[in-house]
Design a protein around this nucleic acid. Sequence first.
DNA 1: CAGAATCCCGGAGGATACTG
DNA 2: CAGTATCCTCCGGGATTCTG
Lengths: 120, 120
Amino acid sequence: MKKTVTGCSVEEAMHLLGGRWRLLIVSYLVDEPKRFNELRRLMPGISQRMLTLDLRALEQAGLIRRTVYPTVPVKVEYSLTGDGRRLEKVVAVVKEFGLWLKDRDKQVLAGREVSPALTV
Amino acid sequence: MKKTVTGCSVEEAMHLLGGRWRLLIVSYLVDEPKRFNELRRLMPGISQRMLTLDLRALEQAGLIRRTVYPTVPVKVEYSLTGDGRRLEKVVAVVKEFGLWLKDRDKQVLAGREVSPALTV
DNA sequence: CAGAATCCCGGAGGATACTG
DNA sequence: CAGTATCCTCCGGGATTCTG
């Protein structure tokens, strides 16, 4: 995303998390570390390229950690750092909003609006 | 942003809020309604075009309300709807994270790392 | 398995001019 | 003041191929 201009904290945060995938990636790392292909399976829409790029960006921001186990074949695990744990709250709140949103739109799609009185 | 695939709530939420400006716009509407050019002044980086598009998108999502006062010249106010109020928590948490982030990066830029013991 | 390298495209976002 | 209307740029993101 393009550089921020005002230095507003919301702007800065969205600059780092505003993409399509980053917060989603973080959300999958909250519970336990995940491997590269594990993340790919969890996000069928993402390409390896973007997954790699976003993981690198989050790593460079110090929010996630990349651990390589020198086995054969190699095993790479991604996990939240201490700093990254600061995103747990963000993930939780966004998820809560997303849940409400999905539910609300389901109602709309079903043709049942909020006001039952009108549908009598 | 492109359509979501998994229906994950985080993904849905980011689909609606993931752009560069939308959550920032909402953050400015939390306290009190704002006029069009007022928002422009608050966000020097945004173009009229994007401001209009994002306002329309948020309006269509039922999160903000557009009120036109038929004065001369016209006065248009944007405010959060009841549904939009559900974003207050999101804004607060994201802002808190952004603040922490900015502060952390300021430390890094100043060359003072977290561990004083090492710098003795 | 976990990527790197390459090529490619659509759309998010920008610049400018104009208007009721 | 609060927008439309155009045109344009750039980069987020995708598809495919290759490798240690």
